[in-house]
Amino acid sequence: MTIDIREAYRRALDDFGALVHQIGPGQWQTRTPCVDWDVRTLVNHVIKENLEAPELLSGRAAAEIGDLFDGDLLGDDPIKAFDASAMGAVQAASGERSLTSVTHLSFGDVPGAEYIAELFADVLIHTWDLARAIGADERLDPELVEACETWFSDAANDYRQAEITEKPQPVPSGTDPQTRLLASWGRRG
């Protein structure tokens, strides 16, 4: 990966957050490319991951966290809820030991660097999902697309076996990197 994963994650969260700030009052129930998710559910999902990140990067196990962050995390001010959660996640990921710590996820233990890469990839793909849902500019940062595509080329089989991603979509040769990345995650760009 050509960019530090912590920096990639921060930038992806910044891009997602910029879109959260663009969500109009009537768009929270708009469908997204994520099966069965509207905009509110999608943003809630990212907030949940943001809130879990400091816990997991500090050594707590997913089993210990349990359902602590289940339910509606957006409250009456979804933008404020997102901003606060993103700040905490970025601080945790930027920590001195974040890359070398062991994170105890529901499917097993992984190095912090791998967990941050997973968070980065998830929020980057969901940035496109949110942009598509609210009619915003769907272009993703090309450097982040490249970093995610490189990382996902090694992780794709594990994600598909765990049924975390949709079935990949076919793309013709010569397709641009963003379309290839989205297709590998089951999105039709």
Results as ranks from 00 to 15, higher is better:
residue 14 D to A: 14
residue 14 D to T: 14
residue 15 D to F: 09
residue 15 D to H: 10
residue 17 G to T: 07
residue 17 G to P: 02
residue 18 A to G: 11
residue 20 V to I: 13
residue 22 Q to I: 00
residue 23 I to L: 08
residue 23 I to Q: 04
residue 24 G to A: 13
residue 24 G to I: 07
residue 25 P to F: 09
residue 26 G to Q: 14
residue 29 Q to A: 15
residue 30 T to S: 13
residue 30 T to C: 08
residue 31 R to Y: 01
residue 31 R to G: 07
residue 31 R to W: 04
residue 33 P to S: 04
residue 36 D to S: 13
residue 36 D to A: 11
residue 36 D to Y: 10
residue 37 W to L: 13
residue 37 W to S: 02
residue 38 D to Y: 04
residue 38 D to H: 12
residue 39 V to Q: 03
residue 39 V to I: 09
residue 41 T to W: 09
residue 41 T to K: 14
residue 42 L to D: 00
residue 42 L to C: 05
residue 42 L to A: 02
residue 42 L to M: 07
residue 42 L to K: 01
residue 44 N to M: 10
residue 46 V to D: 10
residue 46 V to T: 10
residue 47 I to R: 01
residue 48 K to Y: 03
residue 51 L to S: 09
residue 53 A to P: 01
residue 53 A to H: 05
residue 53 A to M: 11
residue 54 P to G: 03
residue 55 E to K: 10
residue 55 E to F: 06
residue 56 L to P: 04
residue 57 L to V: 03
residue 57 L to C: 04
residue 57 L to F: 05
residue 58 S to A: 12
residue 58 S to P: 06
residue 58 S to I: 00
residue 58 S to V: 01
residue 59 G to H: 12
residue 59 G to D: 06
residue 60 R to Q: 10
residue 60 R to N: 01
residue 61 A to I: 06
residue 61 A to F: 07
residue 62 A to Y: 10
residue 67 D to W: 06
residue 69 F to H: 14
residue 69 F to N: 11
residue 70 D to A: 12
residue 70 D to R: 14
residue 70 D to N: 14
residue 71 G to I: 00
residue 71 G to R: 12
residue 72 D to S: 07
residue 73 L to V: 09
residue 75 G to M: 02
residue 75 G to R: 05
residue 76 D to V: 02
residue 77 D to K: 00
residue 77 D to H: 08
residue 78 P to R: 01
residue 79 I to V: 15
residue 81 A to F: 05
residue 81 A to T: 08
residue 82 F to D: 05
residue 82 F to Y: 15
residue 82 F to K: 02
residue 83 D to K: 05
residue 84 A to C: 05
residue 85 S to L: 08
residue 85 S to T: 08
residue 89 A to N: 09
residue 89 A to H: 07
residue 90 V to M: 13
residue 91 Q to C: 09
residue 91 Q to R: 13
residue 92 A to N: 02
residue 92 A to W: 03
residue 92 A to C: 03
residue 93 A to C: 08
residue 94 S to F: 08
residue 96 E to A: 15
residue 97 R to A: 15
residue 97 R to Y: 12
residue 99 L to G: 13
residue 100 T to N: 07
residue 101 S to A: 15
residue 102 V to G: 05
residue 103 T to M: 08
residue 104 H to C: 02
residue 104 H to T: 04
residue 105 L to S: 05
residue 105 L to N: 11
residue 106 S to F: 03
residue 107 F to G: 01
